[in-house]
Design a protein around this nucleic acid. Sequence first.
DNA 1: ATCATAAATGATTGCGCAATCATTTTGCAA
DNA 2: TTGCAAAATGATTGCGCAATCATTTATGAT
Lengths: 332, 332
Amino acid sequence: MPKPTLVDVGREAGVSAITVSRALRSPEKVSEALRAKVEIAVKKLGYVPNQSASTLASNKSSSIVVMVPSISNNVFTDVLGGISDSLYGSRFNMQIGYTNYDSLEEERILRSFLNPTPSGVIISGIEQTPETKQMLENAGVPVVQIMDISEDPIDKIVGFSHDKAAETATQHLIDSGYKNIGFMGAQMDPRAQKRLAGFKKAIKANGELQEKSIAVTNKPSNVQLGGTLFGKLTSQFPECDAVLCNNDDLAIGVLFECQRRGIKVPEEFGICGFNDLGVSSETVPSVTSVSTNLREIGRLAGAMVIGKEDAPTDPIVDLSYHICVRESTRRS
Amino acid sequence: MPKPTLVDVGREAGVSAITVSRALRSPEKVSEALRAKVEIAVKKLGYVPNQSASTLASNKSSSIVVMVPSISNNVFTDVLGGISDSLYGSRFNMQIGYTNYDSLEEERILRSFLNPTPSGVIISGIEQTPETKQMLENAGVPVVQIMDISEDPIDKIVGFSHDKAAETATQHLIDSGYKNIGFMGAQMDPRAQKRLAGFKKAIKANGELQEKSIAVTNKPSNVQLGGTLFGKLTSQFPECDAVLCNNDDLAIGVLFECQRRGIKVPEEFGICGFNDLGVSSETVPSVTSVSTNLREIGRLAGAMVIGKEDAPTDPIVDLSYHICVRESTRRS
DNA sequence: ATCATAAATGATTGCGCAATCATTTTGCAA
DNA sequence: TTGCAAAATGATTGCGCAATCATTTATGAT
């Protein structure tokens, strides 16, 4: 038996197809009695709307397109979780695109996701290609950039300043009495570059920046890599006594490497992570990190893109950050 | 300017719309010259196919529906990564549904995702409702169950036996000389229940099972909870000298809690995790875990559902597991 | 009762594409 | 050349729904 359509439901309920459509989409526009009849018919036939037909007829899909660089990065799973929370129970569904940290891939995917026009777009970062920005502006739907902050968003933006966050974190290490602070980064995407810039700024404000104090790689971030980069950093910069890590994965990897080498944290070496991914607070010693409200970024972006009543009215939302000071930098 | 359609491309290229459609969908059926003309016209107009129209006309979408319990569980992000790898570059895209560990929610979501019919379905576990199974059988497309194993899949299945894995892991703890072994579990979904069953079986085979050796909760698994459950377990079962954890998160939480309490691992307490999520190998001491090929499960499921040439021919694929013995259980 | 107005419901049409069947062109053996 | 199959291309139609406009029915003031 073929899947029932609106016509079938209409026949069952003794009304026209378009009336059924209305009863389902805007129940306030039909009479109570009709709605009840339609509801019964829908249940009886097991009717499920055909999204494609609806999208084609209205030229508007009920998808919220979400563009993120990667699925395996905990940072983005947190954000996606927030968006998912926000959309739950609404009539919108998420369509996720993975750009693999590649702007052209992003443009390509987005182009296909924009036909037909979705109900909204959430996109990571502010470094889209000019073509991508143009496409998004022309789409005529809410666009929320996330993870970063800008005075001049495509439409709306929720995030925080990565360079300021890193600058503050670096200053915290300086204030904690560390003298030779290094920076360690993996997956050096534009936001990671900004964190590095913030680090450099803080160091320069307090003395001289040494190139050897920086160890970065474009490989994906993970705990093991933290240990590896620690080895690289301490061999090129032996006097190093603290490190700001681009991500908590690395920070935790550094902690474990210190434990393996018998280096005392925080006495001999200070560690500060980034994003406060949940494990940092549990390690022994616990690891200082920059908490960045990832889930909240997702939640707000979701609310803003579908125009929830509790969404912020300002198109620019700076969620800021705060340094969770823990044992790994508590020297005294 | 409105988005170009096949008709527009056809006009530009001097051919009919249907010919353009063919040139794009099955280029081997049209002449070389035509294909080139169409390609130029497509580029010039920036034509992007309208998925909805295509789906409606052919009554078949190019989506692969993937049903997973949760996005925030690392286990599933690994699996999703594998599926994503497998589908990359193909004409298929992923449509992800989050069931929140609820069979009825799963049924509801799936019902809406099956209209129009997708190109295939990947679904976690084997505990679908009868209605869900019926729907999937009727869909007439490849269905791959993942994460578990069964003699009687809906269509195909890729996974491993959770009870055997847990049984083997428990036996490993026994063989390592631990005498009072506990079990610790969070997010007690059906597969977690099977792991618990495997634990019980191994314990009973070597002596008597004590109810107090089990500490479980339905809360989502995380590192902090590992510490909490360790507290619960050791207070109800003080002679406990080793634990099998339902998930690596918990195992790592236990390790940290032992460090906080000054309990020596593995001498005084043995720890075995599950799923080998990547951090276990890096901690000090490193944590023994049951490696479960999560990414490979996803990769194979993707290959099987779209019928890649490198997909296994057998509909039942048992990927098994292996115990990664590390320092946390290496007593001697 | 009458009429004006609003509310409720219906008929028609087209969204962009692919399935189906029809037609034209090409290739090539006799 | 002729003929005929195969390849290439085209015309028509309908997928299921919602936008638009048309019609019917209910409501309520006079």
